[in-house]
Design a protein around this nucleic acid. Structure first.
Lengths: 253, 253
DNA sequence: TTCTTGACACGACCACCGTTCCATTATAGA
DNA sequence: TCTATAATGGAACGGTGGTCGTGTCAAGAA
């Protein structure tokens, strides 16, 4: 921000800078700024008021309470997610693109997954997003119930995965290094377990700890989409929704 | 662990009831009691100390801090989950049984999903659970990476679903009635949206709001297991893990 | 141009929270 | 019985979200 130019005294004797009025938008914008820079725990009403150069009690004239504020912040960032218009023949890829966009949004805003995890996005942008999501899912031929629930499942998955990723390196500031350290420590610990009692953990110590966030995300996405596709074949939803024959037989290795 | 052998009364004439000493076990047990009865927000160190008829500062001699206490509570309830020994030919059903058992545990303890959602279960019971889970998943022929991640995905799914269910009727005490009210209101709202702008939401208002928790849970379970089964067919995990051909072609309706 | 009014700002306050310090106390071992 | 060790818990610290009522200021009415 450039230096402030002094206002000529004859121009606006006392009109212009009396105060930038407090509005809900300004509050929500500033809250998002604090969230990005310092995380959810730092976002107290007092800290927010300080940033806005006002008293914390003033905020309650515009936002109700802290929880409602977080609702508003959540709905605001939802504008960053883009959900493609369905194109024939690209269904699975487009569903992935949507989920990746959602994930990018989460990773761009610190602790946002913690806000989103127990919130239903019913703000204006949330509703828009639901509409577009359903539109995309139905374009893949998913029957009503599966489309309705599939959107929920996908967004829950993306949120939970983002939450896991962000909480892994919580507390300290470092991200990459911290995550690597933890993985290494965990790998050593798992390898050190008695192999007679924990054969699977010892055997899988590698795969368990070596999966980075991106790979986990793509894997989970593949699994869920494959599951949705498998369910889309069932035409009568009265029984199971997902064709149960797909899951009832164990694959023999 | 075998039952404790009672101490003969002549052995310790006046040791027993001078005061029941504060132990970590007593603290964790009591914490779980408060959690069940009053929820996570009511579980403060002060409230807990009051229940134990002691000062809140005394607790810190046994548990480190509140977060560690929640770790311990989480690990304690994990004993209630049972994970079956693999039986040939019942793989998918056994995976479901495991997930249902986990879900039952969550529903039996108020707000436990909120505790579990951002916690990796690395306590003794958590480790045991991971071992048994991996054992079951591998028995279905899942390759290493898919087994390692599949367990995570399933438990994340169950936790998130339990969280959603519990947060739906948070605040007020009512559960069934409250949930129904909310669903009705939401249904009315969705139906009231302009059909030109939100055709999918209006069309799917029924399926979206009529899915009760049990059905959601079973549906999601089917989807994920179907996805895992689809992925189990891929023999080389170097590329995608889940056979991408399964998900890349949209099902035509 | 003066008066009035109503929305907004905000200091003071409330009831909590998690955590630490440290003097006191109770217990177990010598 | 005396002493070393550990548990205990009152007081205090620095926070939190939220409410109340007074004060201020700017725009509309007269």
């Amino acid at each position: 921000m450039p230096e402030e130019i002094p206002v000529p005294p004859w121009r606006r004797p006392k009109k212009a800078p009396p105060r930038m009025p407090l509005t809900q938008d300004r509050i929500v914008d500033t809250a998002l700024g604090i969230l990005d820079a310092e995380g959810l725990d730092a976002l107290s009403m007092r800290r927010l008021a300080q940033e806005l150069k006002t008293g914390h009690a003033s905020l309650y004239a515009h936002v109700g309470n802290r929880d409602e504020l977080l609702d508003l912040v959540f709905d605001l960032v939802l504008t960053e997610v883009d959900i493609p218009e369905p194109e024939p023949g690209r269904w699975a890829e487009q569903v992935k693109e949507m989920c990746r966009s959602l994930r990018r949004m989460f990773l761009a805003h610190r602790d946002l997954a913690r806000i989103a995890i127990d919130r239903v996005p019913l703000g204006p942008n949330g509703i828009m997003g639901m509409e577009r999501t359903l539109n995309l899912l139905r374009a893949g031929g998913l029957q009503d119930e599966l489309a309705a629930y599939g959107g929920d499942l996908l967004s829950t998955f993306v949120t939970a995965e983002a939450l896991e990723q962000s909480s892994r390196h919580s507390g300290a500031e470092q991200s990459q290094e911290q995550a690597g350290m933890f993985a290494d420590q965990l790998h050593g610990y798992l390898k050190s377990l008695p192999a007679t009692q924990f054969p699977n953990l010892v055997h899988l110590a590698g795969p368990i700890t070596s999966l980075d966030s991106d790979r986990r995300f793509e894997l989970g996405l593949e699994i869920i989409i494959a599951g949705l596709v498998a369910g889309a074949g069932a035409d009568d939803g009265a029984d199971d929704g997902v064709r149960s024959s797909a899951g009832s037989t164990p694959p023999e290795s």
